[in-house]
Design a protein around this nucleic acid. Structure first.
Lengths: 332, 332
DNA sequence: GCACACTCAGGGAACGTTCCCTGAGAGGGA
DNA sequence: TCCCTCTCAGGGAACGTTCCCTGAGTGTGC
């Protein structure tokens, strides 16, 4: 394969110095129109494209941002809509502002070391951490690199970096209140994994809201997947066959719960009301359609990206909490 | 922010030449144990991490692979499970083999130029194209860069690059045959966007299979999204209220169709049988559970990645077709 | 008419690695 | 004992840019 042309080659072709070519390439104004034209012609003729590595080396910038998502350790590859929405929205925003995106999966402990090395190796100008769980040591160690980093979702350890999250507490309160308003008496919940702040906050809000009414909480644990929602629902039905409402901490688990209820012969919402959280697109397509709390996922990703851009340009950024909204459909 | 230590600094600290440090870092065997130890100590002490750009510049390699996915031009961000599955599986495989992943969204014409420049700029060692539609000029222009590139999904223009696809024709034939075996008489289909080869092949197989039985085809067009499936189903019911089966070219559209049928008061599968394609996880959670054709998405992504690795190491790679499987659940 | 400012092109160091080449020293064979 | 080979450390060029600095040339003000 032929070696790609360099700045030098263009300079020779155009009969000018490489400094001038560099100036034209970078759009500096202090260059005579005649030279600019000659250079542009030579660039087009040779098909010149600046070498990224050389540029990065001398400028000490890469124009690349890492999106770091935690990868479930199990061999399974999940179709989590969150992943698609967040990665897509953030990537789009980054590309719009002229950055490349480096996607990094943080799975095993082994890969964590790799991530640290990668960030420390100057490959990126900054990073976005997506939905890290509280047990993960990665945020702490990465924040020590001194690189500009923001988190999509509040971290368990406060103060490490700026973040953007939705109002989990407010949303969960809305959800449970809606069930109460309907006159539901035994309201259970399917919680997310408790090492994630979103799950903690939603569970806490559920408990607080119920407590005010003197009702007892009925809790089953899931991990934000459909199958865990289905299993948790089965367990809830065993624990309390009389329950007449369930608040699932996300839509995926609500979808799982819906399936279990159907298998158990319970009618939704007549026998049991179900409400989810997130308002993913699939929530419009369940039978019955899922009542849920809309959390602005795309928005959150965009805002997180903008927070990083702020951090890069101004050196400072403050956390953001986005409001949620109750979406009433058929299931509650 | 303090400048990160360089090879030179480590060499000075360890009292050896930078050549020796470089040798230790890169694990070359021709270095005395005593020197290796001293260097390793200095590396640990200073927290040295090699600079990526400098390394890339001199080695002419980046250890980075681009995953290029077409981004729908509409402002919408979709939660397409395909995106999550494919990007995740491919990324995991790439990271496992020591590559970084650069995620590139190819949307507007403007961004296409950006992508070409990016690949030509030597930022990556190779690229994976994901599910490009036939109208997209990107594959052709990218293959002209001479970079090793493979495609996830067969391209409309053959011969541009190696690819991995599943057996669309076989799968669609299985699906329609299953409906015929059930004694269904009026079998409609919801096709995907016809500029994608997967949609073309599935539609062609539907037509061929029906033709052999003397039945006429009833076709509505979708674009692989849930909402398009719902709309197409509505149109099909208008066109032929007597239809008793639908083959949707993917599960997302089947899910949309299911909703329309429910709204129209048709029972599935009693009145109308529905069969999808892909076997995404959500297919297990519809009511009724979706009968579908399993296409090995994760597998396909992994195989595509391996194809690229082959291409990188051996310079050659041949297309792969993966088999599909009929998964019978409740909807047909 | 002369000095001075101002514009703009070119030369070359620097960025932080890798890798080739040289050469010092050790070891072994005749 | 001498020479040849072999091992392994160091020096320095090269990778392809950017950017600072120098200096040539032109224009301007008095």
């Amino acid at each position: 394969m032929m070696r790609r042309p360099t700045l030098h080659a263009v300079a020779a072709r155009a009969g000018v110095s490489k400094s001038s070519v560099s100036r034209v390439i970078n759009g500096e104004p202090t260059v005579a129109p005649s030279i600019r034209e000659t250079v542009l012609a030579a660039v087009a003729e040779l098909g010149y494209v600046p070498n990224g590595a050389a540029r990065n080396l001398v400028t000490q910038r890469t124009n690349t941002i890492a999106i770091i998502v935690s990868d479930p350790p199990q061999g399974l590859v999940s179709d989590d809509p969150m992943f698609a929405m967040v990665v897509r929205a953030a990537s789009r925003e980054l590309e719009r502002t002229g950055f490349q995106v480096s996607l990094v999966l943080a799975g095993s402990d082994d890969s964590r070391r790799r991530v640290e090395q990668y960030l420390a190796g100057g490959h990126v100008d900054g990073a976005i951490l997506v939905s890290m769980d509280g047990a993960d040591p990665l945020p702490a160690s990465l924040s020590r690199t001194g690189l500009p980093i923001v988190s999509h979702g509040r971290l368990a350890t406060p103060g490490l970096m700026p973040w953007v999250d939705n109002d989990n507490q407010g949303g969960a309160t809305q959800a449970v209140q809606h069930l109460l308003d309907q006159g539901r008496r035994r309201i259970a919940t399917i919680s997310g994994p408790l090492d994630m702040t979103a799950a903690q906050e939603r569970l806490a809000a559920y408990r607080d809201t119920l407590k005010d009414t003197g009702r007892r909480s009925i809790v089953a644990l899931g991990d934000f997947t459909r199958i865990s929602g289905a299993e948790a629902m089965r367990q809830l039905l065993d624990d309390d066959p009389q329950l007449d409402a369930v608040f699932a901490a996300n839509d995926l688990m609500a979808i799982g719960a819906l399936r279990t209820l159907r298998e158990a012969g319970r009618r939704v919402p007549d026998d049991v009301a179900v409400i989810g959280f997130d308002d993913i697109e699939a929530a419009r397509y369940t039978a019955p359609a899922l009542t849920t709390i809309r959390s602005p996922m795309t928005d959150q990703a965009v805002r997180t990206t903008q927070l990083l851009l702020d951090l890069l340009s101004t050196g400072a950024a403050t956390p953001v909490v986005l409001p949620t909204e109750l979406i009433v459909r058929e299931s509650a």
